[in-house]
Nucleic acid binder design. Structure first.
Lengths: 384, 384
DNA sequence: ACAGTTCCTTTCTACGGCGAACGAACTATT
DNA sequence: AATAGTTCGTTCGCCGTAGAAAGGAACTGT
């Protein structure tokens, strides 16, 4: 426990804390009066008056005139302006970079996809300000989603994006753009997204299980995404659940057999033809008629259940969200999976589908960027 | 993200924050001057003068006269008085309750073991004040270690202690004694202890693997013990690593086969005689001479390695501490285990023995009780 | 002895939080 | 329609604390 080198209760500090306390209350309530703010933040009305005045002047809050009254002076309605805080969500993909500007509601204001030519940092630093345009002053943060493991703004283990070596992408962008930048695994961002605005908004702990070409998990414990010591938390594709399974160069033993692509091969064998776009959905449909397909589906469910149970034993997330190909299961299959999980897990573990789909990364990026902005200068300045 | 209902920056609050900031700086530095305090806490000298005066008056700090000077007025040496903060560590065991009073260094000041007769709460509330004696005003907190899973002061799943039903032991004791009380799993406390004062003092993440009659793990992520949604994090004895393994009524499939008691049976078969007190140590010794024993030791190591790898895949603790029977491995066996783990883990994972042994729970309890005391009233008052 | 240096304390000022009084806006009542 | 009652929001002023700066204290080196 190292004491912070700066004064813990400096004057400006406490002012910032109050500000962000009011802002976050307003953000979650959307529409509220000063009276409600006093209840939510615990600040006295006298303290709030000048603070709210500032926030209105800066465009964070919008006066909406008097609301309904209940036997007294009606409360003056304040509305949070989501446009006052913009964030950029950048997704690094193998051949291209997709970049979105969104307000704090998650509404996308501008979108663009560029081919990956030249330096990534240059591309990002050019695209973001251009897309943000007039709203640039409102830009509060940038979140960069990258496949693979990232640690402190550097991206490792992402051969598909050509970032095999550690690159301090985040730091470079942060220095160039002057706003907080967070870089993270796409699965972690999905977990943060579902936690902020999806199927995990009501809980403090969850595990998002994403099945794609590989299998990865995003872990939220006590309301925060946990990355582990080396940023490799959630690499559940490497779980050694079956001694027979063998991984190979960067592919874990479990995901080698139970990932979407592995399943796709078996589905093609069951129903010859083109590789289906959504093999799991295809498998579920086949299983209704074909006994062999149903047997294989059962195998898949058993394998995934063992995966979920393993995670439940280690971290007890309480809720597991199925994402990617795993979200293609129908209700009946999810119920079967739930039953298998309940059988093996040492504590109640709820299995359900993630709800945000493609939007999960975006919402996670927004949530990260906003909280990076909230933590303020500490993110901007590199630790000494 | 719920805004706290109380004012975030009230006046008394900031005073408390400063105080505890100084105290924690002093606690970690042990001996220091006011000048060093200004550096460590960032508080101005002017702020520190009256604060330190209070702390000296209260006995937290002791003036030790002038120290060596380097071309100027010598710094007045202040020494942190560990006796100013006492904590009680209570361990619930099947037939008895062991109770220790320790200062914040971990030095045990008083110790006592009582038979479990009558109500646990009564016993604790009688034993603690009696042991603390004159030092009672300095009592900062009580930590209760219980086998099984505990959630928010209530203990569940601890048939061996006769606490099958949820009992708000923590809350009752807290109300009766008037100091913060934390109740937790003994393995979690060990993990906290190793993190605070043992083999994990230099890292923010670790996993303590405790092999006893069962197998459990304590998880520290980002410097905090993580218990999961239902308090069942670390129930790694339930990991379904081998489909053939079967657990039974409260015993997980993995621990049914690879716990200390399970290993003891095999060791007795290898070397007929009385059941050894430390079967793992006995096995290691046997393995030096006996080929079959060595083969079985290898089996055990492979099983444990798969366990560690599983944990590494899910949470990436970076460091794994072997505790209980697992700490009985000799250096060579630990090295073999390390090699196996490195082979399967997706990120570097260091395996080493825990160093505190029986003292781990005590140090964990101290650390918990002190931090509970630091968080102040929030612990005392039940959440609304 | 004297300057130089470092450490601690005291003094002073300014500013922010909060209590209390006040003004504003509306409903219910007579 | 006037008045009382109620609830909101703002202004005022006190108090306490943070921070700057100056002053005193204790020691080293010349």
């Amino acid at each position: 426990m190292v004491t912070p080198p700066t004064s813990p209760v400096s004057r400006e500090r406490s002012k910032e804390i109050k500000r962000s306390s009011v802002i976050s209350a307003a953000r979650s309530a959307r529409v509220l009066s000063r009276a409600e703010l006093t209840e939510l933040t615990g600040l006295s009305p006298a303290t709030l008056t000048p603070l709210v005045r500032d926030l209105v002047a800066e465009g964070y809050l919008i006066e909406r005139g008097p609301g309904a009254s209940r036997a007294g002076r009606p409360r003056a309605i304040l509305e949070f302006n989501p446009r006052a805080e913009l964030v950029a969500a950048v997704a690094l993909e193998p051949a291209r970079i997709s970049c979105e500007i969104a307000d704090s509601d998650g509404a996308v204001i501008a979108h663009r996809t560029v081919r990956r030519t030249g330096d990534i940092v240059d591309l990002i630093c050019a695209a973001v300000p251009e897309l943000a345009g007039d709203g640039l002053p409102a830009l509060r943060g940038v979140a960069i989603a990258a496949p693979g493991v990232s640690t402190g703004g550097a991206v490792r283990l992402a051969p598909s994006v050509g970032l095999v070596q550690a690159q301090p992408v985040g730091e470079s962008v942060q220095r160039r753009l002057g706003v907080p930048v967070v870089v993270d695994n796409d699965v972690n961002l999905m977990a943060a997204g579902e936690h902020a605005a999806g199927a995990g908004a009501d809980v403090a702990d969850l595990l998002l299980l994403h099945v794609g070409d590989g299998i990865g998990a995003g872990l939220v414990l006590d309301g925060q995404v946990r990355r582990g010591a080396g940023g490799a938390a959630g690499e559940v594709g490497f779980l050694p659940l079956d001694p027979a399974d063998q991984g190979h160069d960067g592919v874990g033993p479990f995901e080698a057999r139970w990932s979407e692509s592995a399943i796709a091969e078996r589905v093609v064998a069951l129903a010859p033809g083109r590789r289906p776009a959504a093999p799991v959905r295809a498998l579920v449909e086949l299983a209704a008629a074909d006994e062999r397909a149903d047997a294989y589906l059962a195998e898949v469910l058993v394998a995934w259940a063992r995966l979920v149970v393993s995670c439940a034993c280690v971290v007890d997330p309480g809720r597991v969200l199925l994402s990617g190909a795993a979200a293609d299961l129908d209700d009946a299959a999810v119920a079967r999976l739930q039953a298998l999980v309940s059988l093996g897990a040492p504590s109640p573990t709820e299995v359900r589908r993630a709800v945000l789909g493609d939007q999960a990364v975006l919402h996670g990026a927004i949530s990260f960027a906003l909280s990076a902005a909230a933590s303020g200068l500490s993110t901007l300045l590199p630790a000494p």
